[in-house]
Lab assay of single mutants.
Amino acid sequence: EDEVKKIVKRLIENGVDDEQIKEIVKRQGVDERIVDKVLKELK
């Protein structure tokens, strides 16, 4: 989960929008619920 957080944070800093972040992270095989949780925490 910490790995996911790092990735998502980097994507947000690069101006990637939420939908794209979800797609990218899902392609890495991460559960969507984890992605949603991380996005909420970082906003």
Rank of each mutant, 00 (worst) to 15 (best):
Q28G: 10
E41S: 04
K9W: 02
K22A: 06
V16Y: 15
E1C: 06
K26I: 15
E32G: 12
D2C: 03
E13P: 01
D2V: 09
Q28N: 10
E23F: 01
R10G: 10
E41G: 04
G29M: 04
Q28D: 09
D2S: 11
I21S: 01
I21E: 00
I7N: 05
L11N: 01
K6H: 10
K9P: 00
I12V: 09
I12W: 15
G15S: 05
E32R: 07
L42H: 06
K5M: 07
V35P: 00
Q20H: 13
I34E: 06
V35D: 00
V35T: 07
V38W: 08
I24G: 02
D18N: 09
K37Y: 03
L39A: 01
V8N: 00
E23T: 11
D2Y: 08
K6D: 10
I21A: 03
D31V: 06
E3C: 05
V4S: 01
Q20C: 02
V8Q: 00
I12F: 11
K5H: 08
Q28L: 15
R10A: 15
V16D: 05
E23A: 14
I34L: 14
I34N: 03
K5F: 04
R33V: 11
E19D: 13
V38R: 01
E41M: 03
N14M: 15
K37N: 07
V4I: 13
Q20G: 11
L42G: 05
R27T: 09
R10H: 13
K6F: 03
D18Q: 10
G15F: 06
E1L: 12
Q28Y: 10
K22Y: 10
L39W: 01
L42D: 03
I12T: 05
E23N: 11
K43L: 13
K40V: 10
L39H: 02
I21D: 00
L39P: 00
R33Q: 14
I21Q: 00
I7Y: 02
G29S: 04
I24M: 09
V4C: 03
V30N: 04
I12P: 00
I34A: 06
K26Q: 11
E23R: 11
K6E: 14
K37W: 04
I21C: 02
E41Y: 03
E19T: 12
D31M: 06
K43F: 07
L11H: 04
I34P: 00
K43N: 11
I21G: 00
K43I: 10
K22R: 14
V16G: 03
K26H: 08
K6C: 06
R27P: 03
Q28C: 07
G29R: 03
I7T: 10
K9G: 08
L42T: 07
R10F: 09
V35C: 03
I7V: 10
K37D: 06
K22F: 10
V8G: 00
V30H: 13
E41K: 03
V30I: 14
K22C: 03
N14T: 14
V38F: 06
R33G: 11
Q20T: 15
G15D: 05
E1I: 15
L11W: 02
K26N: 07
N14C: 06
V30M: 12
Q20W: 08
K22G: 04
D36I: 11
K5N: 05
G29Q: 04
I34Q: 06
V25Q: 04
D36M: 03
I21L: 06
R27S: 14
E23I: 13
V30Y: 15
K22Q: 06
V30T: 06
E13H: 09
Q28M: 15
I7L: 12
K9I: 12
E13M: 10
I7W: 05
D17K: 13
E19I: 11
